[in-house]
Simulated assay, not measured.
Amino acid sequence: TRQATHVQDTSPVGTLDYIDPGYLHTGRFAPSSDTYSLGVSLLQLVTGRLPRGADGRTLHEWVSTLLRAGLIHDALDPAASRESSWPLEDARMLAELAVQCCAYERARRPPLAQVVIALQKLASSAEEKTLASASRTAREPPSMFICPITQEVMREPAVAADGYSYEAAAIQEWLRSGHNSSPMTNAPLAHQRLTPNFTMRSAIAQWRDG
Rank of each mutant, 00 (worst) to 15 (best):
L66H: 08
R68I: 03
R68S: 11
R68E: 12
A69W: 02
G70A: 09
H73C: 10
A75V: 01
L76V: 03
D77H: 03
D77V: 02
P78T: 00
A79E: 07
A80Q: 07
S81M: 14
S81A: 15
S81Q: 15
S85V: 00
S85K: 01
P87W: 05
E89A: 14
D90I: 01
A91T: 02
A95D: 02
L97Y: 04
V99G: 12
A103V: 00
E105D: 10
E105G: 04
R106E: 10
R108F: 10
R109C: 04
P110T: 01
P110Q: 04
L112I: 10
A113M: 14
A113Q: 13
Q114R: 09
V115C: 14
V115P: 04
V116S: 13
V116K: 04
V116W: 02
L119N: 01
Q120G: 02
K121A: 00
K121W: 00
S124G: 06
S124D: 03
A126Y: 10
E127R: 09
E128R: 15
K129Y: 08
K129P: 04
K129A: 15
K129N: 13
K129M: 13
T130Y: 14
T130P: 03
L131T: 05
L131D: 08
L131A: 15
L131I: 07
S133D: 12
S133P: 02
A134W: 06
S135I: 06
R136N: 08
R139C: 09
R139E: 06
R139L: 14
E140Y: 03
E140A: 15
P141Y: 06
P141K: 04
P142M: 13
P142R: 08
S143Y: 09
I146V: 11
I146H: 11
P148C: 06
P148Q: 05
P148N: 05
Q151S: 11
Q151A: 12
Q151W: 05
E152Q: 09
